[in-house]
């Protein structure tokens, strides 16, 4: 619905954004792809040579890769489980009328605005520290042995920290979705003799299904790239116990200066993320037509 004149203007106005993003995507991506086939270490410059698939072989057969892959899946899965279940319950609770709704909403949403390095350090030191942390204090108060979270259950601890950060996101989106549910539908179901459980299962859950999918997909994209939380708490350790794919590639590239190996890992990470991305894009794309 426009004239040739305005279409030409439109093309002109969209081009900076398109060109910048195109550059941002193509230049580094092709470099990563190129490096991944090179033997290239920053410590021994000038020795770059073509090695074919060697980097991929090393990366994919490295036990650390499997540890990192498992950890990545556990981290993503664990956080999703906690935030979705917690988010649905919280959304149901906050959707009820009560005094001080606005304030409680603000309290619940707050963790989302805390920068990852802060939340990781606060949890690590002030809560999970086996000597001075609050959890240790409560354990001692109950006569239990304080638990050293980050040494003995590093991945679980990181899952807890990340879940705390993302729970508000899930809650907020599910609450928004719940509030968009036509209350007449619920009243009609009530007139039809459905109790709360029935209403939840047959009306609310189907209504929430779409938003839950959106939450899962978006969180997955972000959770695959969890980095700062690991960097400031465990440094991926002990061993590879809390190393995820992102951290493994970071360590290989910028700690061991193995550009070739790190790039091969980067390509693998991109492929994994794309699998999730395809599903997410379909969801969002459908919405565009509406």
């Amino acid at each position: 619905m426009a004239t040739q004149h305005s279409r030409a203007a439109a093309r002109l106005m969209i081009s900076p954004a398109v060109l910048l993003l195109l550059g941002w995507m193509i230049i580094p991506l092709s470099m990563t792809l190129y490096f991944s086939f090179l033997r290239y270490n920053l410590l021994i410059p000038g020795m770059e040579e073509w090695t074919g698939w060697t980097n991929y072989e090393f990366f994919l057969t490295d036990p650390a890769f499997f540890a990192a892959l498992t950890n990545t899946l556990l981290l993503v899965g664990g956080v999703l489980l906690i935030t979705i279940i917690g988010g649905v319950l919280l959304a149901l609770l906050l959707d009820q009328p009560f005094w001080g709704q606005g304030i409680v909403r603000i309290l619940v949403i707050a963790p989302f605005f805390v920068m990852p390095t802060v939340s990781a350090l606060v949890w690590k030191n002030m809560f999970m520290n086996p000597v001075n942390g609050l959890f240790a204090y409560f354990a001692k108060f109950l006569g239990l042995q304080p638990f050293d979270f980050l040494s003995h259950a590093p991945l679980f601890s990181i899952i807890l920290i990340v879940a705390w950060q993302w729970l508000p996101f899930a809650t907020l989106i599910l609450l928004t979705a719940l509030q968009s549910l036509d209350s007449e539908q619920l009243e009609a179901a009530e007139m039809d003799g459905a109790n709360f459980l029935n209403r939840f299962v047959f009306i609310m859950v189907p209504h929430l299904a779409r938003s839950i999918t959106v939450v899962i997909l978006i969180q997955t994209i972000f959770l695959l790239s969890v980095f700062a939380e690991i960097l400031v708490t465990t440094n991926g350790g002990p061993g590879y116990a809390s190393t995820n794919l992102t951290y493994l590639i970071y360590a290989q590239s910028l700690l061991q200066f193995d550009v070739g190996g790190g790039s091969a890992g980067g390509v693998v990470a991109i492929i994994l993320a794309n699998i999730v991305a395809i599903f997410l894009m379909r969801m969002i794309g459908k919405n565009l037509e509406a």
Binding site: L29, M31, T32, L224, L254, G285
Partner: peptide
């Protein structure tokens, strides 16, 4: 175009860490 722009957001940053760092 919109979907493509979105897809650039899905690129895991670690996948392009090395080139950006070197550049």
């Amino acid at each position: 175009v919109l979907m493509w722009m979105l897809s650039t957001k899905m690129l895991p940053p670690v996948g392009v860490l090395i080139p950006i760092y070197l550049l």
